[in-house]
Design a protein around this nucleic acid. Structure first.
Lengths: 190, 190
DNA sequence: ATTTTTAAATAACATATGTTATATAATATA
DNA sequence: TATATTATATAACATATGTTATTTAAAAAT
């Protein structure tokens, strides 16, 4: 009973996501979403208690998108996949990525601490990383995490050299990984 | 003639800078600056046509602060100094640094293109970088630029390992530079 | 066909902020 | 000392936005 639903929760989140990607998360307003959907603000308030709840739902959507990308890039080597996936997210959703760098509170924070042990474990299985102590592996991981973040930030801000392709980015990520690992081997005299 | 000036342009910019560092650039409002100075908004509008002009002045102040840091870190090796200075800025003015990553439009954009040739020239004078082609030097520079940005972003977001000191940051920057250079040498069979 | 339910629209209210017009009062100058 | 100047305060206005109360009307239930 009652009229058909014309504006769903998903549709609202979709619209918010689009605004976030084009104008930034802080530019999201109830009226702007409504206008973009061709509705009033009423349907939004039916689906969300307030703007904070809507933005929480948006964050969940963003996380789900980044998980989807990670899934698509999965090759069985998390150490490698996470770098590629994060880079792809930064390129495809650059405005949102930049917003996340600022509001890293919930999203990025804790992420490293949680991932670290699993990644170290994964690295220990990698033949190319044979013979390293956990401490050495941690350093290699940290260096690559730093490089990958820098690459993503520069890519999201279009600050890489002109004509730099996605493949170039993947190549330099891989090349630097080689640099770091090779040097670590040299240092321990392998 | 007229009462003494109680609130100068510099004082206003100082106050805006403090708000930018504690709450972010977007949290700056005329009333907030006034309240923090213990004045009304009137002195602000005497010194600035509008809020955009004030924020432009703030940007100039930010650039001048970063220049000052670069000056303080100068050792004659720009390739090295810029990395250290940028890192120090990210640590000391983390909130502003994060804002700059987003609003990189004027600040970061063009920066690389302008600096690149001068840095390459500087690198050619460095004995440790002897024998590399310009193309190889460009790659080394880009890799280090990427690493330095990543390190600065992670530092500004407190995403480096717990207890990570400033010296640790400088050390890992330097260690990675060694990695990249050593590997480049290996590649060309030196 | 009438009534009930409820999704959506509308409009109002509250608050935050930029901005400006006017009033106040401190200081220099005559 | 009286006057002119002007830095500052005050208050009002405009706009943007979150939020809510009320109205409208479409669909189901009777």
């Amino acid at each position: 009973m009652g009229p058909k639903v014309k504006f769903t929760k998903e549709q609202i989140i979709d619209t918010a996501f689009k605004i976030a990607q084009t104008e930034g998360i802080d530019s999201i307003t109830m009226r702007k979403i409504a206008e973009k959907m061709g509705s009033s603000v009423a349907p939004i308030y039916v689906n969300f208690k307030n703007v904070d709840e809507l933005k929480e739902a948006l964050m969940e959507r963003i996380i789900s998108v980044s998980r989807q990308i990670l899934k698509e890039e999965s090759t069985g080597n998390p150490f490698h996949d996470i770098g590629i996936a994060s880079l792809r997210f930064a390129v495809e959703y650059s405005v949102i990525f930049r917003d996340l760098v600022i509001k890293s509170g919930k999203y990025m924070q804790g992420y490293d601490e949680k991932m670290m042990p699993a990644l170290i474990e994964e690295m220990q299985k990698d033949p190319a990383l044979n013979g390293f102590t956990v401490e050495e592996l941690k350093t290699i991981l940290l260096k690559m995490r730093i490089f990958q973040v820098g690459l993503s930030v520069l890519a999201a801000n279009s600050l890489l050299p002109k004509e730099y392709t996605n493949q170039d980015m993947i190549d330099i990520l891989s090349s630097t990984a080689d640099d770091v690992i090779m040097s670590a081997k040299m240092r321990r005299g392998l």
